[in-house]
Design a protein around this nucleic acid. Structure first.
Lengths: 231, 231
DNA sequence: TCTGCCCGGATTGTTAACAATACAACCTCG
DNA sequence: CGAGGTTGTATTGTTAACAATCCGGGCAGA
């Protein structure tokens, strides 16, 4: 896993930094800074930014540059809508053909979620909450569906970050647990409905407060990400 | 609609040529040829090719170039699987909230499909068959879902082209009509099942014959596409 | 004839210099 | 004191030249 192209390293680290909320929405992503952070020329950087733009994690303004996206409220709603459509299908697919590994990976994830909540690590909790949904997608063994959901989940993280989810939580973990129970029971309709309700609940938690996010230290954050990746 | 960036024009026309099957799977997409077809430098071309690569319509081989993709059989199956997951959700969403325009657009599309079949225009029929599904996605008024499905449908066209669909048809139009009926009746489960069956039928029509496609005249085909676009 | 090798041509990948644009600070004028 | 224009600087966008790589054909040798 060493000799991956620089382009992909930039793409992956930056993406990771964004969904990990170390680069808050609105942060300017300056080509030069990224370029010499990764000790490369601007070419690979532009490639990565373009791709992040495609995925909706970054907004590219002509002649102005790239900024980590701040999805407007409509987009947030559409995101949840699309997730309901897709994840409903995922749930049904899983009931139809239960994965050979069983539901163990899901349970492990919820446990981790609970731990994060217990430790008060909001960001980790949100991340794990997303992972839960992602793992479900991966259990279908359909890489295309998994990729689509990965994109949706990443953007959802941004949307939630911008439109301050009220109260605190990401997914209530007990809804996740309930989902697992229904899956175990093979209750297709119940599981599908639970997923739908769950996503609706998340969407309902959106608020219309426009976050006045601050935008610091791109270089530091990306550099740190690199360090930990090296280790 | 004139001053769109050259990048996007290249992207759009090439994409169109691929899903319109004027550029058969396997065709080499040479940067220089595209570049002077569009009277530009290689920069925009590379951008467009990279994007088409992301979407799975083009395969990029390092130091070899870009080729219109030939999705292997597994990928084809995954494509249909993902479509079942997503389109099931779309159907349910439409039943839940019937579109203000009604089902007119869908009916118009099926009519066009029938005409194409009557005229023996296989390619147009396949295209319209895809459009039918796309229109459904658009009726949900969820641009994100629509975009996702657009990608899936395009790749499906390639998959079908490669793995020679037996008999002839793309979608049997009567299945499309039946779907409309069920939607009109507001029969959620019926419509969802019909969609699922429909997609399964399409997938079942895949065959394992590796097409020995010919690969001609990139320049001509793209040039022609430009002409008609200009007119 | 077939195999292996090397070379020429063509194509992709990268880079460094240049052009274009936008933002910010300043400066003038009413 | 404020509005409007102007210049300077920083950043992005583009291009042309260069480097790296791959494919095909020719050639020598078994």
């Amino acid at each position: 896993m060493a000799e991956v192209d620089v382009k992909h390293r930039i793409f992956a680290t930056t993406r990771e930094a964004i969904v990990g909320r170390r680069l808050p929405p609105g942060t300017k992503l300056t080509e030069d800074i990224i370029a010499d952070t990764f000790a490369c020329k601007r070419g690979p950087v532009r490639w990565a930014l373009a791709r992040l733009g495609d995925e909706g994690l970054v907004t590219l303004v002509p002649h102005r540059g790239a900024f980590v996206a701040e999805p407007p409220l409509d987009e947030a709603k559409h995101l949840f809508g699309a997730r309901r459509m897709l994840e409903g299908g995922i749930v049904r697919c899983l009931c139809d053909a239960p994965p050979p590994q069983g539901w163990r990976p899901l349970m492990a994830c919820v446990d981790a979620e609970d731990r994060a909540h217990a430790e008060g690590d909001e960001t980790a909790a949100l991340r794990l909450s997303g992972d839960f949904h992602l793992i479900m997608a991966e259990l279908t063994e359909n890489p295309i569906a998994a990729t689509m959901l990965r994109e949706l989940v990443s953007r959802t993280v941004l949307a939630i970050t911008v439109h301050q989810h009220r109260g605190s939580s990401g997914c209530r973990t007990h809804e996740h647990r309930r989902l697992i129970e229904l899956l175990e029971a093979g209750d297709v309709e119940g599981a599908a409905r639970e997923m739908d309700d769950h996503l609706r609940a998340l969407e309902g938690g959106l608020d219309l407060s426009p976050r006045p996010r601050s935008g610091p230290s791109l270089r530091a954050v990306l550099g740190a990400a690199l360090e930990t990746a090296r280790a």
